[in-house]
Structures are given as structure tokens and as C-alpha cells.
Amino acid sequence: MGVAIAFIGTLFLTKKENTFSISRENISDVIYNEARIAILALDSNGNVDSCNQYAQKLLGVNEDEQYSLTELFDCSEEQFERIMNGKKLAEHLLSVKTKISCNIQAVVSRDVYGDSYGVVLMATDATAEEKVMEQQILIEKTEHISDQLVHTLSKTIEAKDQYTKGHSTRVAQYSVMIGERYGYDKQKLKQLEYAALLHDVGKIGVADTIINKPGRLTDEEFAEMKKHPVIGSEILSEISEIPDVAVGARWHHEKYDGTGYPDQMKGEDISEISRIIAVADAYDAMTSNRSYRDCLDQEVVRKEIERGIGKQFDPEFARIMLEVIDADTEYRLHE
């Protein structure tokens, strides 16, 4: 804020005879009247020559009336002198009229000879700022707790499946890599990460004997396994704070051509996050060791992703996955 004050003190003041005011030629109406900062021009005696609309609201003053600094704020002589000398106050000042606690900063304005002809004072609502800070801290704590809960639940899923340890974490990693290349912002990437971490949560409802069977599943066992997307979406349906986390679980086995499960969704009717997770999930399945086979060669995996474009996978996200594969020249992205 100090830079902004100096900027105002340097450019926005106009001296006329023995008074000066905030120049309406050098400052836009948006900055002057819509800024959530009270801006006041004080003469060398501490009298208000002009102020913006927010100052009138914050301090309960009328621009047409005359006020001195000591009539606006409950301040001591020492505080008055510090303000008039452009020195920062460590403490808040209480508005006499509105009883609002204010943060105060000031800049001395000087003429070409270095003589002071007044002060630009800026005041903000300290109470409101503290509430914003408290809310921000609460938001950060809530996000941290959510992050811990999602990762804990993800590890619970993986503890149930001895053959796919780390699968959800890797799928989240690959999904975020796709999302970054696609242009997702930080918030969208976090939503994608959470959905990917929890995409297999429905496996909690599948028998351990099926989850941990060494070897391929029978048709009957596979039919049971195919229930996990629906189970997962039902478990996650109450988490409204994380958009798409439930559909990410339900539709990550849907295919772009409509031959997937459980709802035979097709094309862009499948949620975007689910289409990303589907590619990342398939990639990790092929690049992980299984009880019945080892991790596939990178070129084999690449050909499978390419073969699935427009069939199993969304063409855009499959092509981005191919870019990720091509950039991984040392084949590090595998279990």
C-alpha cells in the first residue's frame, strides 16, 4: 500500500493558492470513488480540503463540510504529528463519528523547493481487513483438512487392494498433467486431483476375494467389479464442496464411443473430468505391474492410447496424454 500512497501523493495532488486537493484530472473516477480506501487531502494544519466517497462513508463526513484531522480520528498529539510528517502509525485510530477502527497511512506532499504543503491520508477499515484475514485463514484450514481427508480415504482404498498400491495417486498425477496442458487453473486442477484420487472409492464395496484375486477375473467376478463406479458415486454424492468428484467415480470407465459402463454415456455427455481420468486410469493400468503381467513397454502403451482415440478415449485428452508420453523420454511415468 505504501507504493500506492506515494503514487497518489506524487501525482494526484494539485496546489491552488493556499490549499490543495486531489486532482480529478489525474485520477480516474474508478480509483477515486470506487476504491475501498478512504483518500483525504489535508492541508499543512491538518484540515481536510477534499476526500473521496469512501472516506465519507467510512468516516461519516460530508465533503462540503470542514473537518480537521482531530475531529475525524481519536488521536493523540504525537499521532497527529506522525501523520502530518508522513510517518506510519503502528496502531489503529478510531473514527470519531462511525467508531470504526482504521488503518492509517500518510504521504507528505512537497513543492519543487521541498516545502510541505499538506498530506495525503489513506484509511482502511481495520475491522473488515481482520475479518477477511480470519476468513482466509479459515478457508486455508478447511482446504488443508479436505486435502488430508481425501488423501487418507485414497490410501484406505489402496490398502484394500494389494496389487494396485499407489494407483490412485498416480492416476491423480497423470490427470493433473493432462489438466495443466489443457489449461486448467489452480482451482480446477485441485478438483481434478481430488476426483482422480477418489475415482476407485467404490472398490470398498467389492469383496476382497475379487479385489485381491491373483490372475484374471471370471465373467461373474468382473460383473461384480463393474459395480464399483456406481458404489463410488453413491458414497461421494454427499460431497457437494468438491464439484464432479461423484461423477468422476461413476463415469471413469465410460468410453467415448458409448460402449463403457455403467451408463453407456457417450462423447461429451461424459463429464470432462471423467474423460481425463479415463485416459490417466488406462495409462496407469498399462504401466503398472499386475499379478499376471509386468508393466508394458512405453511404445506398446503409446500405441494403445493412440488406438483408443475416439473410441475408448476423448480425442483431445488422448492426444495430450500422447504428448506427455513423448516428453517422458526416459520412461519415468510408470509404477
Rank of each mutant, 00 (worst) to 15 (best):
E34Q: 13
Q136G: 04
V48G: 02
D263R: 02
G179S: 04
M1E: 14
S44Y: 02
K155F: 09
K87M: 09
D263W: 05
V61G: 01
Q135I: 08
K227P: 04
K97Q: 15
T169R: 03
E63L: 01
D147N: 11
A6S: 12
T10E: 09
A172W: 10
M286Q: 08
G183Q: 05
S28G: 07
D74H: 14
Q162N: 07
D208K: 15
F12P: 00
N26I: 04
A128T: 07
R36I: 11
M84V: 06
F73W: 13
G267I: 02
E158S: 14
G179Q: 03
S95H: 00
A4C: 12
N52M: 10
T329H: 07
T98C: 03
I5H: 08
V230E: 12
I320N: 09
F313Q: 04
K255N: 06
H144G: 00
A207G: 09
G60I: 04
R290K: 14
D244A: 15
Q298E: 13
N212M: 11
D328A: 12
I8F: 09
E221L: 12
G86F: 11
T329Q: 14
L197F: 08
E241I: 10
S21W: 09
H92E: 11
I235Y: 06
Q148G: 09
K97G: 11
V119W: 05
S274Y: 02
K131Q: 09
I137C: 11
Y261C: 09
V112Y: 01
I22P: 03
G248Y: 03
L69E: 01
T156F: 09
Q264G: 00
I39F: 03
L189W: 05
Q105D: 13
E323P: 02
V279E: 09
P262M: 04
I139C: 06
A195H: 03
E17V: 10
E129M: 08
I210G: 14
G60S: 04
C51K: 10
E220D: 15
K227L: 13
A159S: 14
Y194T: 06
N62T: 12
A38P: 10
D200H: 10
T259I: 03
V48A: 08
Y163C: 12
S288W: 00
F80E: 07
I139A: 06
S95I: 00
D326L: 08
Q162D: 00
